[in-house]
């Protein structure tokens, strides 16, 4: 089955991983900007990173028939440095017209601090100003519930935000309902220990239905599995779910959500071209 991984950090993965993903049926992916494992020291570090996301990774993926899309921001961990964050936010528009850019992300909260919230709101302003879609990281473990509720407060406070163009990621059993009830898209991240398993993601599909729900691997430099979406497909099949339902979640839903972005010029495996708002 063809699928799209809507959240995976390929800068941290090897070229062999691209080959494996292609063999497993991955035809497209989106890569949000994230934390490199250390705090970067200058805006030029981010400029180089954004060049990697918009140029090098796109070409590396294309060698294996995978279409690569990306999101730009300074992540929540580094948002504690407010002055650097503001420099990065001011620089992001240099890249918004690159052909694979879908929007602003993954912005969000990490430890739910005032500085993180301040920079989150300033990212929202940037997205609104440039009519960009938004991809949001929610915190891990004990911080997740509180942080997700705070993020929803900030989003819902702003009437200029089109909720159908916002994806709130890393939802779990205690946050998914809040996100869907407010009209946003929700992403389930299949990630060992700190997030969700394929089995629990299937449970949430069964409990809430497939509308506005996405499944991703968030494969990165930490313990993670870039082929986690095929694990989800396998679990859905083992339970007896239909191929059409599985395809909706892992392929049609990402296409529907991303198609709201001007940067999503996607060639489907059957060669029909899906462009923004088509």
């Amino acid at each position: 089955m063809y699928y799209i991984d809507p959240h995976i950090h390929m800068v941290s993965r090897t070229t062999d991983d691209y080959e494996t993903l292609a063999k497993m049926g991955c035809v497209g992916l989106s890569e949000p900007a994230f934390w490199a494992g250390f705090d970067r020291g200058s805006v030029d570090s981010f400029r180089d990173y954004f060049r990697q996301l918009t140029d090098f990774e796109r070409k590396r993926a294309a060698q294996y028939g995978i279409q690569h899309f990306t999101w730009l921001c300074i992540n929540a961990k580094e948002a504690e440095n407010v002055s650097l964050s503001r420099e990065v936010i001011a620089m992001i528009p240099e890249f918004l017209n690159e052909p694979n850019v879908l929007g602003i992300g993954e912005i969000g909260l990490n430890k739910n601090t005032k500085n993180e919230a301040t920079i989150f709101v300033e990212h929202l302003e940037l997205a609104i100003q440039y009519n960009q879609q938004i991809l949001i990281h929610t915190p891990h473990l004990a911080d997740k519930y509180q942080g997700t509720r705070m993020i929803l407060d900030m989003l819902c406070d702003d009437t200029r935000i089109d909720r159908s163009r916002v994806l709130v990621d890393h939802v779990e059993e205690h946050t998914v309902r809040h996100v869907l009830d407010e009209g946003f898209w929700a992403g389930m991240t299949l990630y060992p220990v700190s997030k969700c398993t394929p089995q629990r993601a299937c449970d949430m599909i069964e409990m809430y239905g497939p509308e506005r729900l996405l499944v991703n691997s968030a494969g990165d430099w930490g313990p993670s599995k870039p082929t986690a979406v095929p694990d989800f497909i396998f679990e859905m099949r083992r339970r007896g779910h239909s191929e059409s339902l599985i395809r909706k979640v892992v392929y049609e839903n990402p296409v529907q959500f991303f198609s709201q972005s001007q940067g999503f010029k996607f060639t489907a495996p059957d060669a029909s071209v899906t462009t923004a708002n088509s």
Partner: peptide, 27 residues
């Protein structure tokens, strides 16, 4: 039960956090 267990291991959400952070709400 999965949701209940998640909430047991979660920090409390305080709905007046924006006042405590001195952040204006509403646009």
């Amino acid at each position: 039960r999965a949701e209940q267990v998640q909430l047991i291991f979660s920090l409390h959400y305080d709905d007046d956090w924006q006042q405590k952070f001195d952040m204006a709400s509403g646009q």
